[in-house]
Protein backbone atom coordinates (compact mmCIF):
# COMPACT_ATOMS: atom_id res chain seq x y z
CA UNK A 1 0.00 0.00 0.00
CA UNK A 2 2.93 2.31 0.69
CA UNK A 3 4.22 1.61 -2.76
CA UNK A 4 0.78 2.45 -4.17
CA UNK A 5 0.69 5.68 -2.14
CA UNK A 6 4.17 6.63 -3.33
CA UNK A 7 3.10 6.05 -6.90
CA UNK A 8 -0.06 8.12 -6.48
CA UNK A 9 1.97 10.90 -4.94
CA UNK A 10 4.42 10.84 -7.85
CA UNK A 11 1.59 10.91 -10.40
CA UNK A 12 0.08 13.90 -8.61
CA UNK A 13 3.37 15.79 -8.75
CA UNK A 14 3.87 14.99 -12.42
CA UNK A 15 0.31 16.01 -13.29
CA UNK A 16 0.77 19.36 -11.56
CA UNK A 17 4.02 19.99 -13.40
CA UNK A 18 2.37 19.03 -16.69
CA UNK A 19 -0.52 21.46 -16.16
CA UNK A 20 1.80 24.35 -15.34
CA UNK A 21 4.19 23.57 -18.18
CA UNK A 22 1.42 22.98 -20.76
CA UNK A 23 -0.25 26.27 -19.86
CA UNK A 24 3.05 28.08 -20.26
CA UNK A 25 3.45 26.52 -23.71
CA UNK A 26 -0.03 27.64 -24.69
CA UNK A 27 0.52 31.09 -23.24
CA UNK A 28 3.85 31.54 -25.01
CA UNK A 29 2.59 30.22 -28.35
CA UNK A 30 -0.82 31.87 -27.97
CA UNK A 31 -2.06 28.66 -29.55
CA UNK A 32 -3.23 25.32 -28.24
CA UNK A 33 -6.11 23.41 -26.69
CA UNK A 34 -5.71 23.87 -22.93
CA UNK A 35 -9.23 22.81 -21.91
CA UNK A 36 -8.75 19.33 -23.33
CA UNK A 37 -5.14 19.19 -22.09
CA UNK A 38 -6.32 19.69 -18.54
CA UNK A 39 -9.16 17.18 -18.67
CA UNK A 40 -6.76 14.49 -19.94
CA UNK A 41 -3.60 15.15 -17.94
CA UNK A 42 -4.45 13.06 -14.89
CA UNK A 43 -5.21 10.00 -17.01
CA UNK A 44 -2.04 10.40 -19.04
CA UNK A 45 0.19 11.07 -16.01
CA UNK A 46 -1.20 7.92 -14.39
CA UNK A 47 -0.38 5.85 -17.48
CA UNK A 48 3.20 7.08 -17.81
CA UNK A 49 4.11 7.21 -14.11
CA UNK A 50 2.13 4.33 -12.69
CA UNK A 51 1.09 1.88 -15.37
CA UNK A 52 3.09 1.63 -18.57
CA UNK A 53 6.35 -0.17 -19.17
CA UNK A 54 8.70 1.73 -21.49
CA UNK A 55 12.28 2.92 -21.84
CA UNK A 56 12.49 6.52 -23.05
CA UNK A 57 16.08 5.97 -24.18
CA UNK A 58 14.92 3.14 -26.47
CA UNK A 59 11.57 4.36 -27.78
CA UNK A 60 11.23 1.61 -30.40
CA UNK A 61 11.65 -1.46 -28.20
CA UNK A 62 9.31 -4.04 -29.76
CA UNK A 63 7.76 -5.05 -26.46
CA UNK A 64 7.08 -1.55 -25.10
CA UNK A 65 3.62 -0.66 -23.89
CA UNK A 66 2.02 1.77 -26.31
CA UNK A 67 -0.03 4.90 -25.70
CA UNK A 68 -2.05 6.40 -28.54
CA UNK A 69 -3.30 9.96 -28.13
CA UNK A 70 -6.35 9.94 -30.34
CA UNK A 71 -7.38 13.46 -29.34
CA UNK A 72 -4.26 14.73 -31.06
CA UNK A 73 -5.09 18.37 -30.46
CA UNK A 74 -4.29 17.97 -26.75
CA UNK A 75 -0.58 18.26 -27.42
CA UNK A 76 -0.03 20.25 -24.24
CA UNK A 77 -0.80 17.06 -22.33
CA UNK A 78 1.08 14.70 -24.67
CA UNK A 79 4.25 16.74 -25.09
CA UNK A 80 4.60 17.48 -21.40
CA UNK A 81 4.19 13.83 -20.43
CA UNK A 82 6.73 12.68 -23.01
CA UNK A 83 9.14 15.33 -21.75
CA UNK A 84 8.55 14.36 -18.13
CA UNK A 85 9.06 10.71 -19.07
CA UNK A 86 12.46 11.58 -20.51
CA UNK A 87 11.87 11.27 -24.26
CA UNK A 88 13.30 14.73 -24.98
CA UNK A 89 14.72 17.73 -23.10
CA UNK A 90 12.51 20.41 -21.62
CA UNK A 91 13.99 23.08 -23.88
CA UNK A 92 12.11 21.50 -26.78
CA UNK A 93 8.82 22.53 -25.15
CA UNK A 94 9.80 26.16 -25.65
CA UNK A 95 9.56 25.66 -29.42
CA UNK A 96 5.89 24.62 -29.32
CA UNK A 97 4.31 25.48 -32.69
CA UNK A 98 7.20 27.71 -33.73
CA UNK A 99 8.32 27.50 -37.40
CA UNK A 100 9.88 24.07 -38.09
CA UNK A 101 9.40 22.99 -34.48
CA UNK A 102 9.25 19.27 -33.80
CA UNK A 103 6.29 20.13 -31.60
CA UNK A 104 3.62 20.57 -34.25
CA UNK A 105 0.07 21.50 -33.28
CA UNK A 106 -0.76 17.81 -33.68
CA UNK A 107 1.77 15.05 -32.97
CA UNK A 108 4.02 13.53 -35.63
CA UNK A 109 5.82 10.26 -34.85
CA UNK A 110 8.59 11.15 -37.27
CA UNK A 111 9.38 14.32 -35.32
CA UNK A 112 9.26 13.16 -31.72
CA UNK A 113 10.40 9.97 -29.98
CA UNK A 114 7.57 8.41 -27.99
CA UNK A 115 4.80 9.43 -30.38
CA UNK A 116 3.29 6.18 -31.64
CA UNK A 117 1.22 7.49 -34.55
CA UNK A 118 0.16 10.76 -36.14
CA UNK A 119 -3.20 11.99 -34.94
CA UNK A 120 -5.21 15.15 -35.34
CA UNK A 121 -8.23 14.22 -37.42
CA UNK A 122 -10.58 12.61 -34.93
CA UNK A 123 -11.57 8.96 -34.87
CA UNK A 124 -8.15 7.69 -35.94
CA UNK A 125 -6.59 6.54 -32.67
CA UNK A 126 -8.82 3.60 -31.79
CA UNK A 127 -8.43 1.78 -35.14
CA UNK A 128 -4.64 2.20 -34.99
CA UNK A 129 -4.54 1.05 -31.36
CA UNK A 130 -6.67 -1.94 -32.35
CA UNK A 131 -4.13 -2.82 -35.02
CA UNK A 132 -1.28 -2.59 -32.51
CA UNK A 133 -3.16 -4.89 -30.17
CA UNK A 134 -3.87 -7.35 -33.01
CA UNK A 135 -0.17 -7.37 -33.85
CA UNK A 136 0.57 -8.34 -30.25
CA UNK A 137 -2.10 -11.02 -30.46
CA UNK A 138 -0.60 -12.44 -33.68
CA UNK A 139 2.93 -12.57 -32.31
CA UNK A 140 2.03 -13.59 -28.77
CA UNK A 141 3.72 -10.49 -27.32
CA UNK A 142 2.62 -9.34 -23.90
CA UNK A 143 2.79 -5.57 -24.39
CA UNK A 144 -0.32 -3.55 -23.64
CA UNK A 145 -1.91 -0.84 -25.75
CA UNK A 146 -3.67 2.16 -24.26
CA UNK A 147 -5.64 4.68 -26.28
CA UNK A 148 -7.20 7.90 -25.07
CA UNK A 149 -10.06 9.36 -27.07
CA UNK A 150 -12.12 12.42 -26.41
CA UNK A 151 -15.85 12.06 -25.98
CA UNK A 152 -17.07 14.38 -28.74
CA UNK A 153 -14.71 12.43 -30.96
CA UNK A 154 -16.93 9.37 -30.55
CA UNK A 155 -19.35 10.92 -33.01
CA UNK A 156 -16.88 9.69 -35.68
CA UNK A 157 -18.06 6.32 -37.01
CA UNK A 158 -14.55 4.91 -37.38
CA UNK A 159 -14.42 4.49 -33.59
CA UNK A 160 -17.38 2.16 -33.68
CA UNK A 161 -15.89 0.13 -36.53
CA UNK A 162 -12.82 -0.44 -34.37
CA UNK A 163 -14.89 -1.02 -31.22
CA UNK A 164 -16.64 -3.86 -33.07
CA UNK A 165 -13.35 -5.31 -34.28
CA UNK A 166 -11.68 -5.18 -30.84
CA UNK A 167 -14.74 -6.71 -29.17
CA UNK A 168 -15.02 -9.42 -31.81
CA UNK A 169 -11.35 -10.33 -31.47
CA UNK A 170 -11.47 -10.18 -27.64
CA UNK A 171 -8.43 -7.94 -27.44
CA UNK A 172 -7.68 -8.24 -23.74
CA UNK A 173 -4.41 -6.37 -24.34
CA UNK A 174 -6.25 -3.18 -25.33
CA UNK A 175 -7.48 -0.46 -22.96
CA UNK A 176 -9.55 2.48 -24.22
CA UNK A 177 -9.93 5.49 -21.96
CA UNK A 178 -12.58 8.06 -22.83
CA UNK A 179 -11.91 11.59 -21.60
CA UNK A 180 -15.57 12.21 -20.75
CA UNK A 181 -15.58 15.95 -20.17
CA UNK A 182 -18.98 16.26 -21.86
CA UNK A 183 -17.92 19.29 -23.91
CA UNK A 184 -16.88 19.43 -27.51
CA UNK A 185 -15.59 22.40 -29.45
CA UNK A 186 -18.91 24.16 -29.86
CA UNK A 187 -21.19 22.93 -27.08
CA UNK A 188 -22.04 20.00 -24.82
CA UNK A 189 -21.84 16.52 -26.30
CA UNK A 190 -25.36 15.66 -25.24
CA UNK A 191 -26.92 18.68 -26.90
CA UNK A 192 -24.80 18.25 -30.06
CA UNK A 193 -25.22 14.55 -30.81
CA UNK A 194 -25.74 12.67 -27.56
CA UNK A 195 -23.42 9.83 -26.56
CA UNK A 196 -25.09 8.45 -23.44
CA UNK A 197 -25.41 5.75 -22.32
CA UNK A 198 -21.78 5.18 -23.30
CA UNK A 199 -21.27 2.29 -20.87
CA UNK A 200 -24.15 0.31 -22.31
CA UNK A 201 -22.93 0.94 -25.83
CA UNK A 202 -19.44 -0.31 -25.02
CA UNK A 203 -20.83 -3.37 -23.23
CA UNK A 204 -22.94 -4.17 -26.28
CA UNK A 205 -19.77 -4.04 -28.40
CA UNK A 206 -18.11 -6.68 -26.20
CA UNK A 207 -16.04 -4.52 -23.86
CA UNK A 208 -15.53 -4.59 -20.12
CA UNK A 209 -16.57 -1.17 -18.92
CA UNK A 210 -15.74 0.87 -15.87
CA UNK A 211 -16.68 4.46 -15.02
CA UNK A 212 -14.60 6.53 -12.65
CA UNK A 213 -13.46 10.00 -11.71
CA UNK A 214 -10.81 10.83 -14.30
CA UNK A 215 -9.00 13.12 -11.89
CA UNK A 216 -8.72 10.51 -9.10
CA UNK A 217 -5.19 9.16 -9.52
CA UNK A 218 -5.68 6.28 -7.09
CA UNK A 219 -8.84 5.11 -8.82
CA UNK A 220 -7.20 5.45 -12.24
CA UNK A 221 -4.16 3.51 -11.07
CA UNK A 222 -6.29 0.66 -9.74
CA UNK A 223 -8.44 0.47 -12.87
CA UNK A 224 -5.54 0.70 -15.31
CA UNK A 225 -3.50 -2.00 -13.59
CA UNK A 226 -6.34 -4.48 -13.05
CA UNK A 227 -5.77 -8.00 -14.33
CA UNK A 228 -6.88 -8.63 -17.93
CA UNK A 229 -10.24 -10.31 -18.42
CA UNK A 230 -10.04 -11.61 -21.96
CA UNK A 231 -12.08 -8.71 -23.25
CA UNK A 232 -10.95 -5.25 -24.29
CA UNK A 233 -11.35 -2.76 -21.47
CA UNK A 234 -13.08 0.61 -21.72
CA UNK A 235 -12.67 3.16 -18.95
CA UNK A 236 -15.04 6.08 -19.04
CA UNK A 237 -13.10 8.75 -17.18
CA UNK A 238 -15.48 11.46 -16.05
CA UNK A 239 -13.47 14.65 -16.30
CA UNK A 240 -13.75 18.41 -16.22
CA UNK A 241 -12.59 20.39 -19.21
CA UNK A 242 -10.04 22.91 -17.97
CA UNK A 243 -9.64 21.04 -14.66
CA UNK A 244 -7.47 22.85 -12.12
CA UNK A 245 -7.98 26.47 -13.19
CA UNK A 246 -11.13 28.09 -11.82
CA UNK A 247 -11.98 30.29 -14.76
CA UNK A 248 -11.44 27.48 -17.31
CA UNK A 249 -13.38 24.65 -15.75
CA UNK A 250 -16.37 23.42 -17.74
CA UNK A 251 -16.08 26.21 -20.29
CA UNK A 252 -16.30 25.07 -23.92
CA UNK A 253 -14.62 28.33 -24.92
CA UNK A 254 -11.36 27.01 -23.41
CA UNK A 255 -11.30 24.21 -26.00
CA UNK A 256 -8.84 26.33 -27.92
CA UNK A 257 -8.87 29.48 -25.81
CA UNK A 258 -5.50 30.97 -24.91
CA UNK A 259 -4.62 32.98 -21.78
CA UNK A 260 -3.59 36.61 -21.58
CA UNK A 261 -0.90 37.65 -19.09
CA UNK A 262 -3.32 38.17 -16.19
CA UNK A 263 -5.07 34.86 -16.78
CA UNK A 264 -1.74 33.10 -16.97
CA UNK A 265 -0.62 34.62 -13.66
CA UNK A 266 -3.90 33.64 -11.99
CA UNK A 267 -3.61 30.09 -13.27
CA UNK A 268 -0.06 29.76 -11.97
CA UNK A 269 -1.27 30.84 -8.51
CA UNK A 270 -4.01 28.23 -8.58
CA UNK A 271 -1.87 25.39 -9.94
CA UNK A 272 0.15 24.66 -6.82
Amino acid sequence: MTLHNDTVSRIKDKALWMRRRAFKMVHDAQLGHPGGDFSAIDVIATLYFGVMSYDATQPNLPNRDRFIMSKGHATGALYTVLCAAGYFPESWLDTYMQPRSLLNGHPNRNYLPGVETNTGPLGHGLPVATGIAISGQITGSDYRTFVLTGDGELQEGSNWEAAMTAGHRKLGNLTWIVDRNRLQQGAGTEETNGLDPLDKKFEAFGWDVQMLDGHDHAALLTALTAAPTGKPRAIIANTIKGKGVSFMENKASWHHGVPNADQFATAMKELV
Binding site: G123, V128, T130, G131, I132, I134, S135, S158, E161, A162
Partner: peptide, 15 residues
Protein backbone atom coordinates in the same frame (compact mmCIF):
# COMPACT_ATOMS: atom_id res chain seq x y z
CA UNK B 1 -11.57 3.23 -42.27
CA UNK B 2 -10.93 0.68 -39.54
CA UNK B 3 -9.12 -1.55 -42.04
CA UNK B 4 -6.58 1.12 -42.94
CA UNK B 5 -6.17 2.34 -39.34
CA UNK B 6 -5.65 -1.23 -38.15
CA UNK B 7 -2.97 -1.70 -40.80
CA UNK B 8 -1.07 1.32 -39.45
CA UNK B 9 -1.25 -0.26 -35.99
CA UNK B 10 0.00 -3.58 -37.33
CA UNK B 11 2.96 -1.76 -38.86
CA UNK B 12 3.59 -0.07 -35.51
CA UNK B 13 3.73 -3.57 -34.06
CA UNK B 14 6.37 -4.60 -36.60
CA UNK B 15 4.15 -6.39 -39.12
Amino acid sequence: QCMVGVSAGLANGGR
